[in-house]
Design a binder for these strands. Structure first.
Lengths: 163, 163
DNA sequence: CGTGAAAAAAACGCAGG
DNA sequence: CCTGCGTTTTTTTCACG
């Protein structure tokens, strides 16, 4: 069984990535297929796991997340038992929107959102720094977003206050 | 005119973020509203710009992007004319999926995908390092993704080869 | 692949409470 | 906010070339 993608599949993916709500007939038109076979391709792409889901993209600032930071963390030991505690704790923090283990002297890269600088300071002091085995934390605050909207961001418990 | 969000709005956003394809009646049920007013809320949230769009989430590895890296770049001068050339060039690179100006000794943080290490090396040498005014580039390669799927990733021109 | 078509489901909009 | 109703659109499936 081979499941390679042809050009049309790639174009379908490109379009669905930009607009997941396009109707299947419009989509079919744009890739120059008729509705029925086009729809089958979409379902196939979903089954193949190429499309992992459909998500609303939310406006970070409108939700009250005025701050974003890249955070690098170095931990004491890299053995499984101690790092897995760290990993679990970080995964549970909803302000952490991205979390990767990385190669190099530092061990982890986090992308974090916060309401403002105060909020971020508290997050750092009261949560990140207190996690088990944390040796060093370096923050790089975002000043401007040139590319790449964040998706999957936390929804605050209380309402945002757009001004 | 005030446009604050109540609890139900936030729950709607949370649900749409997880599944943009939910039907409005199912959504209504989950937030304990009836279909009609629930639907109006969604439209209102869209008009308010809280929902910026609906997007298919794609599988990075299935698309052939086996590598991901965080890249910090320091440029020569921070004046507008020279940095804007850099910014434009980076924005045009489709492998760059996230691109922020940051505070600190480094000037920019990029999140980059590549097919493999070779591909990444070429990207670095042939593109990033050659951009005008680049002083220093530091790479942090992702070893493991603990949290935060990437969205809006480039669709390769040629088909991916899932094995 | 294509076409056409038809049944089922959803979206959308409006009335009256 | 609700319920209900109707119209339009879309989805989904199927038969056939």
């Amino acid at each position: 069984m081979h499941n390679d993608l042809d050009d049309i599949d790639l174009r379908i993916l490109r379009i669905l990535q930009a607009d997941a709500r396009i109707t299947s007939s419009d989509l079919a038109q744009q890739v120059h297929l008729s509705q029925s076979p086009c729809w089958k391709r979409v379902k196939r792409l979903e089954k193949m796991g190429l499309v992992s889901g459909y998500h609303a993209g939310l406006n970070r600032r409108a939700l009250g997340w005025g701050m974003m930071a890249f955070v690098m963390v170095e931990i004491e030991k890299q053995d499984d038992s101690s790092s897995s505690a760290f990993i679990q704790a970080v995964q549970a923090m909803e302000e952490v929107v991205m979390f990767h283990g990385i190669a190099g002297p530092q061990d982890f890269m986090l992308v974090v959102v916060a309401r403002d600088l105060d909020d971020y300071g508290q997050l750092l002091q009261r949560q990140l720094h207190r996690l088990p085995g944390v040796r060093r934390v370096s923050s790089f605050l975002s000043l401007e977003e040139f590319k790449g909207q964040l998706h999957h961001m936390p929804i605050p418990a209380a309402a945002a206050a757009p001004h």
